[in-house]
Design a protein around this nucleic acid. Sequence first.
DNA 1: TAGATTGTTAATCGATTAACAATC
DNA 2: TAGATTGTTAATCGATTAACAATC
Lengths: 206, 206
Amino acid sequence: MADRLTVGVAARLSRYLQVLTQARKMGKMRISSQEIAEYTNINATQIRRDLSAFGKFGKRGVGYNIDSLLGEIRKILRTQGQHNIALVGAGRLGQAIASSPIFAEHGINIAAVFDTDPEKVGRPIGHVAVSEYAQLNESVHDKNIIVGVLAVPAAAAQKAADDLVGCGVKIIFNYSEALLETPADVTVHTSNPAVELLYALYFHLT
Amino acid sequence: MADRLTVGVAARLSRYLQVLTQARKMGKMRISSQEIAEYTNINATQIRRDLSAFGKFGKRGVGYNIDSLLGEIRKILRTQGQHNIALVGAGRLGQAIASSPIFAEHGINIAAVFDTDPEKVGRPIGHVAVSEYAQLNESVHDKNIIVGVLAVPAAAAQKAADDLVGCGVKIIFNYSEALLETPADVTVHTSNPAVELLYALYFHLT
DNA sequence: TAGATTGTTAATCGATTAACAATC
DNA sequence: TAGATTGTTAATCGATTAACAATC
């Protein structure tokens, strides 16, 4: 249990967390592995296996209690605290990200938003105001930020990534198409709807 | 070769496609499996294995020619044509999606955008104008659309999904947090930045 | 009790990795 | 030739699945 989870297990547990959070919002109290399977496209046996590796969280013939399972998975993933993240880019995508409840639901707080456009500085976005880009370093340190989200045009992405890395950020979520060069100890997640679409199309067409 | 790809292989090939597309935009002509590995976090041996299953596309000591490899992967994934997709929701997220080059780069054309807000109807978005929501059925049929992208609030997502399914759409990309109920022959991809962030944090914190 | 669903086993398959000869 | 990188093998590990007893 003190062992680190494998990448696969951690990814799947995170998805269960998301399904449980939404199911709870829909007023459900209990959920079966079969229902989680329908929402995640992960095999129901796999789900039960993943969970039973950490304890007996379910009740045979009944399913899993959503609230208690949420607590257990959060414990396993150690995501019970609040995490501060920085958003770079206050354009349409940045605004959409900042106003989405999806991060707040999981204890992720958009603690600061930056933009190089002086026009945008000071405007409200999410529950903060857009800060000057020059404030990046100070904010990242003051607010103990380790995650940066890039919602900037592809042409500006590498410089923004370099600046974030320079401030000590270790995890970057890249919403631009650009390929980013970063030191080995920095994790880059590039979000790419087109990639998923291409492969969904493959299975549709064949 | 006439066999269907496994889900894993199709997903990885799609990611290679994205990296190659971007590398070409950056002016590169050749790329090694090691370089692709750095951008995708997929093991270099795995990449060479995936590619060599379909032919000898590389040159030893040199790497892969980006243009020719792009062509080969497109052939394998059968994504050489144009595909029309419908976007539902012309808010900030919808506008961000419509104005991103990421779909067009892969031959995916946002052929129609819908919104229930009469204020938004007629406004330009991407390279089209926002259509009345009532036009959904007609457009989907006329334009041979099989993919729908949902950029609507969570509360409106299920209805929009039902309407898309009713028009014959078989692939739905859901950018809301909502869990969607759909018939078994419809594929739903729910995009969730928070899920990826949670599991990235796990590995950072442990 | 009857029905449902978990927890677990066992068997199979695909992914991952190191290593290295082939060859550009 | 020397250096680099592919293509391929072999070994290991994790994911997937069916099946079913346990039990709520």
